[in-house]
Amino acid sequence: MADGIRIENLVKTYGEGETAVHALQGVDMHVGPGEVVGLIGPSGSGKSTLLKCLGAVIEPTSGRMTIGEQTIYDNEWKIPDLRALRRDRIGFIFQSPYLIPFLDVTDNVALLPMLAGVTNAKARAHAVELLTALDVAHRAKAMPSQLSGGEQQRVAIARALVSRPPVILADEPTAPLDGERALAVVKILNDMAARYQTAIIIVTHDEKIIPTFKRLYHIRDGRTHEEGGRVEPAS
């Protein structure tokens, strides 16, 4: 896990021939362990396609991607079990928390390890540990519908962290939150990245949080441009 997530010359083309759409045209990106980077770009620039490739939801047409020392894609080659990869090595945070409405907070967080075969008691204990770190342990028995937007997003962060994945992909995690709560979520992500040495990529349009990234990737017409050293993360 020494190297976080790295992609080299990633290409994704939808369709063939004259109707082909070149969504990604040789993207390079590297996010180290414990690092939080932003990914911004206008609509249609390829953000979602890049996020889906990074999340092993769709396969790139060519290029290389590694997580730690494990190669995920290498041009035509890919690891055989992308589902297990998503379960064990990639955490997801969405624009809406998408918590499972019929599970309480603890089980929402503990679900993934439970499905992976960890005993319920052990998975729940670990979930409570994370909820404590995220300051929502007092809502551990609450149902998602009883939580505020900020609490729901913190639970979603705990769920993303529960498998201790080396990479977390966050898709507009602060979109439904006001400025103060949005900055609080970014601070939590930075803290968690530092604590668990997780590489976190945040796709965002949120002007409030963009200045908080140490490094920022712009994506335009399927190509990334790196920008860095803006301001310190929110404190």
Binding site: V57, R83, A84, R87, D88, F92, I100, L112, L115
Partner: peptide, 12 residues
Amino acid sequence: REIAVLKLIGTR
């Protein structure tokens, strides 16, 4: 949505 999330996070 919930099923899509379950599938995304690796549920069989």
